[in-house]
């Protein structure tokens, strides 16, 4: 079965947007998860709630809010445009922002759990050995949280791949720019006589999902093995 240019385009865009989404939320997610796992501060509950909003809000609402904030007339969007000439809506970068926001809570949850599981006593020991905060975090905390980091990343990537509502609201459904697999499938279903093309896309989506599942399982097993070797 050879794929049509339109199908390739959708696959390429899906992977590009998924990877871009994970790339921008990963550093931010690590920082936020660390804040939540290791610090007490005023407004912690508010921050926690804000992060979880995309998980409970209808994706369309998230897309609309993004449009309000990041649109050319939006508070942040206007500034972005006047300062950097950057406009996010109706671009693949905008789609990456939208799917990143939707995937963010999943990443933070997984990361926070595994950061909390790192023994603070080890961090204290490192600090008495002369390691400052940054070194403690990069050499002790983060490496010991790697299993959670992997799970969270794969989960976030999968979520970004399948993102639909927020993306179509914020970045629209533009072929070759923001039309990812779910959006292409939706388009096909909307037009009569495209059932077999829709079935093909459906199959491709299943295959990609399976591949990422197997890959994540393999990665998880490998890290678990490596950690077990370390523990003897």
């Amino acid at each position: 079965m050879s794929l049509s240019p339109a199908e390739w385009e959708a696959i390429r865009l899906s992977l590009l947007i998924g990877l871009a989404a994970v790339a921008w939320i990963l550093p931010l997610g690590i920082g936020v998860a660390w804040l939540l796992a290791r610090h007490e501060f005023r407004g912690k509950a508010v921050l926690d709630g804000l992060i979880h909003l995309p998980l409970v809000l209808p994706p369309v609402v998230v897309g609309y809010l993004l449009l309000v904030a990041l649109g050319r007339q939006g508070v942040i969007g206007a500034w972005l445009y006047s300062t950097f000439g950057l406009s996010l809506p109706f671009t693949w970068q905008g789609a990456a922002v939208a799917s990143g926001v939707m995937a963010f809570p999943l990443l933070v949850r997984a990361l926070r759990l595994s950061l909390e599981a790192v023994d603070p006593k080890l961090e204290a020991a490192a600090s008495t050995l002369g390691a400052g905060r940054w070194r403690v975090f990069t050499t002790i905390t983060l490496p010991l949280a790697v299993p959670g980091l992997l799970t969270g990343t794969v989960l976030a990537f999968a979520r970004a791949l399948s993102e639909f509502g927020a993306t179509i609201t914020f970045a629209s459904n533009i072929p070759g720019e923001t039309r990812t697999l779910p959006l292409a499938l939706y388009t096909l279903i909307q037009s009569p006589g495209q059932e077999s093309a829709a079935a093909r896309l459906c199959l491709i989506a299943v295959v990609i999902a399976l591949i990422s599942l197997v890959a994540s399982e393999w990665l998880a097993r490998r890290t678990r093995q490596r950690l077990q070797e370390r523990d003897g």
Partner: peptide, 17 residues
């Protein structure tokens, strides 16, 4: 980390990785 005071804890606390 700026005190230069070494500590040997009750539970060794070696870094497992």
């Amino acid at each position: 980390h700026q005190r230069r005071i070494g500590v040997v804890f009750q539970e060794a606390r070696l870094f497992p990785h």
